[in-house]
Computed example of a mutant assay.
Amino acid sequence: MNLKLTPPKEITFWISVALGLLGLFSFLGVFTLLPIEAFWLLFIGFALLVVALLVKDL
């Protein structure tokens, strides 16, 4: 199996980091006004980063 991974664009990377941090802060109780659970914020951020690695120019 030969995967050709490409580095994500900088904006995609920072969006995924921001989603991960929001998920972490939501889990810790810093942000309680978010209508989505912390797990899903972390999952979406990680999934975005994985998709950006697999898709060229994302």
Rank of each mutant, 00 (worst) to 15 (best):
residue 10 E to Y: 12
residue 9 K to Y: 13
residue 24 L to S: 10
residue 5 L to S: 14
residue 5 L to P: 12
residue 14 W to Y: 13
residue 21 L to I: 08
residue 28 L to Q: 12
residue 49 L to M: 04
residue 52 A to I: 01
residue 4 K to N: 14
residue 9 K to W: 12
residue 25 F to T: 08
residue 31 F to D: 10
residue 5 L to N: 12
residue 57 D to H: 05
residue 41 L to Q: 04
residue 38 A to Q: 08
residue 18 A to S: 10
residue 54 L to P: 03
residue 47 A to C: 03
residue 54 L to D: 03
residue 43 F to S: 05
residue 11 I to P: 12
residue 38 A to G: 10
residue 28 L to W: 11
residue 29 G to D: 06
residue 29 G to W: 08
residue 51 V to H: 01
residue 10 E to F: 13
residue 54 L to V: 03
residue 18 A to K: 04
residue 5 L to Y: 08
residue 39 F to R: 09
residue 38 A to V: 08
residue 29 G to R: 07
residue 31 F to H: 04
residue 26 S to P: 11
residue 5 L to G: 11
residue 44 I to L: 05
residue 37 E to A: 12
residue 34 L to K: 11
residue 54 L to I: 05
residue 52 A to F: 00
residue 9 K to P: 11
residue 4 K to Y: 15
residue 4 K to V: 15
residue 49 L to E: 02
residue 58 L to Y: 02
residue 23 G to L: 05
residue 14 W to R: 04
residue 4 K to I: 15
residue 36 I to S: 11
residue 14 W to F: 07
residue 54 L to T: 06
residue 27 F to K: 09
residue 45 G to M: 01
residue 31 F to C: 10
residue 19 L to H: 00
residue 3 L to Q: 14
residue 33 L to E: 13
residue 44 I to M: 05
residue 10 E to N: 10
residue 43 F to N: 03
residue 3 L to P: 13
residue 10 E to Q: 12
residue 3 L to T: 12
residue 56 K to W: 04
residue 49 L to H: 02
residue 30 V to P: 06
residue 6 T to Y: 15
residue 34 L to S: 08
residue 18 A to R: 07
residue 52 A to K: 00
residue 53 L to V: 01
residue 36 I to T: 09
residue 28 L to D: 13
residue 54 L to H: 00
residue 6 T to S: 14
residue 11 I to F: 14
residue 22 L to D: 03
residue 6 T to H: 15
residue 30 V to S: 06
residue 37 E to P: 14
residue 38 A to W: 06
residue 34 L to M: 13
residue 21 L to N: 03
residue 25 F to M: 11
residue 6 T to D: 14
residue 41 L to F: 09
residue 28 L to Y: 12
residue 18 A to E: 03
residue 35 P to K: 09
residue 29 G to Y: 05
residue 14 W to Q: 05
residue 48 L to E: 02
residue 54 L to W: 03
residue 56 K to I: 04
residue 14 W to C: 06
residue 37 E to F: 13
residue 12 T to G: 09
residue 36 I to E: 06
residue 24 L to T: 11
residue 41 L to R: 02
residue 43 F to Q: 01
residue 3 L to F: 12
residue 27 F to V: 06
residue 27 F to W: 09
residue 55 V to A: 06
residue 49 L to P: 01
residue 18 A to N: 05
residue 19 L to R: 00
residue 44 I to A: 05
residue 14 W to S: 05
residue 7 P to F: 11
residue 34 L to R: 10
residue 25 F to G: 10
residue 52 A to N: 00
residue 56 K to S: 07
residue 27 F to E: 08
residue 47 A to R: 00
residue 51 V to T: 04
residue 43 F to G: 01
residue 10 E to L: 10
residue 48 L to H: 02
residue 45 G to I: 00
residue 2 N to C: 15
residue 11 I to D: 14
residue 34 L to Y: 07
residue 18 A to C: 09
residue 27 F to Y: 10
residue 53 L to D: 01
residue 2 N to G: 15
residue 20 G to F: 09
residue 8 P to L: 10
residue 26 S to A: 13
residue 43 F to P: 00
residue 19 L to D: 01
residue 26 S to E: 06
residue 58 L to P: 05
residue 51 V to L: 04
